[in-house]
Design a protein around this nucleic acid. Structure first.
Length: 509
RNA sequence: GCCGCGUUGGUCAAGGGGUUAAGACGCCUCCCUUUCACGGAGGAAUCACGGGUUCGAUUCCCGUACGUGGUACCA
């Protein structure tokens, strides 16, 4: 690792919802920058104009903000190396492609999409199902390597569309040291002549990523393993462009796989298995299709990040629950693993549950409120909400769980599990509840202690076992066999509501 | 097909030439709780296979298998 200052980037393509794998890539870059006092830049890779999706860029920014991943430079916070959107940098790329042509490391190619398809079709064999545009085929194609110079000039002058392709050398071995995987080497004879500049004048990812990383002085590149096969091309580009001494260190992150079967985790898997894949809700502007996000499912940002950090990284200690600040302090590239990890939604919920338990009740209440409102629960008192949150948080894995777990605090249960009461029901019990609730006004200050004392006294007088009376009481108040301490519930919902619910239940028994 | 990368319980994983091969999620049992959870205590469950190297391989090397990524004018 050289001594220049650390600059990393997260370079998503704004084509839709932000996948959790993307967030993890952003997180690892961010953590690395924090660890080495570096800068984190967000660069939008929108070189494919056919895949432009309105709103996707802002959505990415919003997701990072929700997560708590802070960028130092981005399209919205310009810095010394802007612009930070590749479409805005379009004029910057061509000169480098042309430099390569002059050097003999790239060439013009005039083949139409149809011609390319025909070549691939014609050359396809069982042994070689995907023929490449490479050293073995380029001389039979229409390019400045295969055609006489005069003809090339004529086409150029006539304004015939063309692309610029990299001229992959033969017989070389490209080797580089990956921060995560160690030495990686490839034989150039097997690599193809990738398009560098498209016919619309836009660079492809390959050209843009190298030019931008150079111009933006990026020192370390952490990206998904799907980029490993094209890393040799990038290394070659750094060399041919004369920037080898400034080449960043590469670190290819393991893939996040689907929980069942095999393959990269996709949005489809989430839809199919019922869990979110995107960081936040995403609505496709074309189809109007909405995809749920972790945020809206009730995840705490730090829990989300904590869970993501453990998908491919391990601190080497027993500690599993980390705040963002703790991750920043503990993160180390050496502990990133090489193998892909299957995403486990159950474990994700466990991380969330652990963070919920550690979150201050008032803070939690603020986060929970939107979920209760969405469930139509009338919450009119913040203090009561904080109290309720403290009582039910134990059993919540997501913020959304609070709605179900605390609904009875805010309104009478719609369904009462009468069957669980009827089994041992007696007229004596009915009389007990009727009499006790009629005397609620004698309880005095309506709090846990007083209510309990009143209950104990009444139970003793009735001669019925306490256990026989506690469960039905709970069911009458909350609707079922769940929830926190009954006396706490009674205190919060108030004497009047308790009496009403008991009477309503009695009427049905 | 070819090329790259990978392979410790169902999942995430620690470890690393000699260990009873950590821990967590999930699952099961029990305890706690006059409910449900939380929590606690236990339990079942793992080094892909074949060759080497070695006194000794889960660990090192080589193969094989399997998985996965790439093989686009997508990123």
């Amino acid at each position: 690792m050289n001594s220049r200052s650390v600059r990393v980037r997260f370079a998503p393509s704004p084509t839709g919802g932000l996948h959790l794998g993307g967030v993890r890539t952003a997180l690892f870059n961010y953590l690395f920058a924090k660890r080495y006092n570096g800068k984190m830049v967000l660069r939008v890779e929108d070189t494919d104009q056919t895949r432009f999706v309105p709103g996707a860029e802002q959505y990415i920014v919003d997701c990072l903000e929700w997560c708590g991943i802070v960028t130092d430079e981005s399209p919205l916070q310009s810095g010394p190396y802007g612009p930070y959107r590749q479409s805005d940098r379009k004029p910057m790329y061509r000169q480098y492609a042309e430099q390569l042509i002059v050097q003999g490391d790239a060439y013009y190619a005039f083949d139409t999409p149809e011609e390319l398809e025909k070549m691939r079709e014609d050359l396809k064999t069982p042994e070689n199902p995907s023929p490449q545009y490479d050293i073995t085929t380029r001389m039979r194609m229409r390019n400045s390597l295969s055609m006489p110079p005069g003809e090339v000039d004529a086409l150029l002058e006539a304004g015939i569309p063309y692309v610029i392709r990299f001229r992959m050398p033969e017989g070389e071995t490209i080797q580089f040291d990956d921060l995560i995987r160690g030495s990686i080497s490839n034989d150039t004879g097997l690599l193809d002549d990738k398009v560098l500049l498209k016919s619309d004048g836009m660079p492809t990812y390959h050209l843009a990523v190298v030019v931008d990383d150079y111009l933006m002085k990026i020192s370390h590149i952490f990206r998904g393993e799907e980029w490993l096969p094209s890393a040799p091309l990038h290394v070659l580009l750094w060399k041919k462009l004369g920037w080898e001494q400034d080449m960043p260190h590469f670190g290819h992150l393991p893939l996040i796989l689907k929980p069942d079967g095999n393959g990269k985790l996709s949005k489809r898997d989430g839809d199919r298995l019922g869990f979110p894949v995107f960081a936040m809700d995403w609505t496709d502007p074309q189809t109007g299709e909405k995809t749920i996000g972790f945020k809206e499912r009730g995840f705490l940002p730090e829990a989300f990040l904590n869970m993501l950090a453990f998908l491919g990284w391990h601190p080497g200690t027993e500690q599993e629950i980390f705040s963002l600040a703790e991750l920043e302090a503990a993160f180390s590239v050496e502990r990133i693993s090489r193998s892909g990890a299957k995403f486990d939604y159950e474990k994700a919920k466990w991380f969330n549950q652990q963070h919920i338990q550690r979150t201050d009740n008032a803070v939690l209440a603020a986060g929970v409120l939107p979920f209760l409102e969405a469930a139509g629960l009338p919450v009119d008192n913040k203090d009561v909400l904080v109290r309720v949150v403290s009582l039910v948080k134990d059993r919540c894995h997501t913020l959304a769980d609070f709605a179900e777990q605390s609904a009875f605090f805010f309104r009478a249960p719609e369904q009462i599990d009468l069957d669980s009461i009827r089994g041992k029901w007696t007229p004596e019990k009915a009389a007990f509840y009727r009499e006790w609730s009629d005397n609620f006004n004698a309880v005095g200050s309506w709090d846990h202690e007083s209510i309990n004392a009143s209950f104990e006294t009444a139970v003793a007088a009735s001669g019925i076992k306490k256990g026989e009376l506690m469960l039905p009481l709970r069911i009458m108040l909350v609707g079922g066999k769940f929830g926190p301490n009954v006396m706490d519930i009674m205190e919060i919902i108030g004497a009047a509501a308790c009496k009403e619910r008991i009477e309503a239940a009695l009427a049905q028994l």
